[in-house]
Amino acid sequence: MVEQVSNVTHKYLRPKKTFPNVWCPGCGIGIAMGALIRAIDSLNFNKDDVSVVSGIGCTARIPVYLDFNTLHTTHGRAIAFATGVKLANPKLHVIVISGDGDLLAIGGNHFIHAARRNIDITCILVNNYIYGMTGGQYSPTTPFAKNASTAPYGMIEQSFDPSDLAKSSGATYVARGTVYHASQLSRLISQAISHNGFSFVEVISNCHTQYGRLNREGSAVKMIQWQKEYAVPASAAARMTREELEGKFVTGKLHEVFRPEYVSEYQKIIDKFNEEEEENRQLQES
């Protein structure tokens, strides 16, 4: 089993220079990366047709290890870069993977507008509730009353629910998974990539080095076990009351609708001009 998984993973990794990776031992980001690789493998894409784009942060270091067309951009701007990549070459499967600080704080504006546009990009947000790389500052998803290095007396801001935000901004596919439920996660990611439109997957992960330490949540294992205990599958959640769901989070596919996709709509305009041109040409010839 391990051998099988590792065979798939190694097919998509860059052996040259990039390893060892930058993540702390026990970090969930590696699991998220593995899930992404298995999702792409299950879709049988040609490696040349996949582009992975990220911003800045721990999660944003994923692309350098992957043997695709990879783009590590500036802080918060991954989705804006990805928009250009997708429009200029629509045959590419464009996947943005980044963290909660990158996509929702500095990159929040690009996030909601890409969702509103419904451009065919898959956006994976690895949510560890904190800025890991810079040392544990609070992020837009840090829960109320939790500690961070810049919230030494507890977080007094309210937090974003990334999946709710994506849905209300117009994303046409929204799902939530965890790094504990790794095989479900790769299924959700592959569904998201197959979806035509802006698709969003929130991945609940652990940062025991910063968030766990500052909030006394224990080791990586303990934090990942928390995900197992507090995750409620979407099907079960539908039968539960609001009170029963308090403090828990729902996993699985949360939302899927079909609306006109931006790149295809743009192509229709181009095709219309092409047809007109063709008609004119035939008229002139006859």
């Binding site: 582009s51 784009v53 783009l71 951009t73 500036t74 701007r77 804006a80 870069f81 990805a82 928009t83 250009g84 990549v85 997708k86 429009l87 200029a88 070459n89 590419l92 504006n109 690009h110 507008h113």
Partner: peptide
């Protein structure tokens, strides 16, 4: 949505 996104998008397009 803004100028930051504009230049990001043209860089992305150029790379593609």
């Amino acid at each position: 949505e803004d100028e930051i996104a504009s230049i990001a998008a043209i860089i992305g397009a150029s790379i593609a």
